[in-house]
């Protein structure tokens, strides 16, 4: 949404504070990355319209982008109380529960969302990955039981070091999103979907859905934190702007956006309703970044199809 549109919505809201313009305005601000302002707009709107599901949905979306997951859950639960078949709330809860490691809740919400919108490919992919994660968790749980049985029968761990080591490793393994076994190493997780394409370079690749939420890939900072959600949320708005521009330029659909900054080269391509994004530290040649993007798109297509 252009600045003029945001300005017009702001003026409309200022002229009539009871207007529902706060919903597109808050969403536009969220997509633009103005999360503080978006939250203020959303909160005021939800206070004025407490019975509107979309008002609480907006608060939840902004909260999720700000990393306030508890508040996001609370708001989406309110949405479901008001509108039990609200697919966006189910989807949001699914992603947030997954981030919190609540895999069964995530699967339930994503399943419900998919039932509401069976054509949403990103939902099918997400549900599949959560189910894989649940399977892995079940395997780890079975390993725990086996270890306890061994301990209960008085067998020393040193008598079975390979199995003991294996179980310890299984227990230490945090539930992760497994990839389709026919596509990738089954031990890898969705976060590692593009790792082998990057060849150890200072770069990252992500698959984002239409809402800028990370479906696969990661962006690991120097301190080890995964910033994929933050980076994805900030940059996904560029593709929205490109789509809007293409409607007026007569060049057909956009295929690739590349931009260089002081610190990084970023390339993105559309995929279904989402986007594949590659970011690399500036010394890495732009041509390499574009090649990685093309390969990441093929990988993401195969992954999404394999998840269905």
């Amino acid at each position: 949404m252009a600045n003029d549109d945001i300005r017009a919505l702001s003026e409309e809201l200022a002229a009539d504070p009871t207007s529902l313009a706060f919903i597109p305005l808050g969403e536009a601000l969220r997509r633009r990355g103005d999360l503080e302002v978006a939250m203020r707009v959303a909160m005021r709107g939800a206070e004025r319209h407490p019975m509107r599901p979309d008002a609480h949905d907006l608060v939840a979306r902004v909260s999720a982008d700000r990393g306030e997951l508890d508040r996001a859950i609370s708001e989406w639960e309110t949405v479901l109380q008001l509108a039990p078949s609200h697919g966006g709330a189910r989807k949001g809860l699914g992603f947030v529960c997954f981030q919190l490691g609540r895999l069964e809740d995530a699967a339930a919400h994503l399943g419900a969302a998919l039932a509401i919108d069976p054509d949403d490919g990103s939902l099918a992919a997400a549900l599949q990955t959560v189910r894989h994660a649940l399977d892995r968790q079940a395997d780890a749980d079975r390993a725990t039981v086996a270890v306890r049985r061994v301990a209960a029968t008085g067998e020393s761990e040193s008598a079975h070091p390979p199995r003991g080591a294996q179980y310890t490793e299984a227990l230490a393994t945090r539930p992760t999103i497994a990839l389709p076994s026919d596509l990738q190493d089954p031990e890898a997780d969705a976060g590692a979907l593009f790792d082998d394409l990057l060849e150890g370079q200072r770069s990252a690749a992500m698959l984002l859905d239409a809402d800028g939420l990370v479906l696969a890939g990661r962006y690991v900072a120097v301190d080890g934190r995964d910033l994929a959600a933050d980076i994805g949320a900030q940059l996904s708005g560029v593709s929205d702007e490109a789509s809007r521009a293409m409607r007026h330029l007569g060049l057909g659909a956009w295929r690739q956006i590349v931009f260089e900054t002081e610190a990084a080269s970023v390339a993105m391509a559309p995929l279904q309703e989402g986007v594949v994004l590659v970011a690399a530290a500036r010394p890495i040649p732009l041509g390499f970044v574009r090649r990685v993007l093309e390969r990441a798109v093929h990988r993401a297509i195969a992954w999404l199809e394999g998840s269905r």
Partner: peptide
Amino acid sequence: LTASLYRKARRSAKAAGFGATTFLELAAE
């Protein structure tokens, strides 16, 4: 429209901690 896209890329890149945008290419069909 291109100025608008460039502004958006610049804001997004800055928010993501990538610094100032210097070049943008939009490839279409």
